[in-house]
């Protein structure tokens, strides 16, 4: 079913626009807002974007290796928790979802780097 035109316009209004363009395969550093009691601070989560969902409720999945353990976080695009997203580097990938990286580790889990703006 196609989206209602009113919903389309509303979604565009609610969509946040300050995030840079990034695609699966990119390595990004996500500044995550963390609340500790009253204070709020930023924590970076750096890893490879292995999936991105589009639309009004879009999200993206970032995977990183933390002390030999694979860690994935899913961030809604419109979430207030995401303060900033910085693109670190890009890689050449041939599919939209890089879930095959979950089965690989070390040298095998590398991606070929490519210059992209």
């Amino acid at each position: 079913m196609s989206i209602h035109p009113v919903m389309q316009r509303l979604a565009e209004k609610l969509q946040r626009t300050d995030l840079p363009d990034f695609v699966p395969g990119d390595t990004v550093r996500v500044q995550v807002k963390i609340k500790e009691g009253e204070k709020e601070r930023l924590q970076a989560f750096e890893g490879i974007v292995i999936a991105k969902k589009h639309g009004p409720q879009g999200s993206f999945t970032v995977r990183k290796m933390s002390f030999g353990q694979g860690v994935e976080r899913i961030f809604p695009l419109n979430s207030r928790v995401v303060d900033k997203v910085e693109k670190v580097r890009s890689a050449r990938v041939r599919r939209a979802k890089l879930f095959y990286l979950r089965g690989l580790r070390g040298k095998a889990a590398r991606l070929k780097e490519v210059e992209r703006t």
Binding site: V6, A11, P56, R80
Partner: peptide, 11 residues
């Protein structure tokens, strides 16, 4: 019209 989701100030 339809349903969707929003984030409030608290996130």
């Amino acid at each position: 019209i339809g349903m969707t989701q929003v984030f409030d100030e608290k996130g």
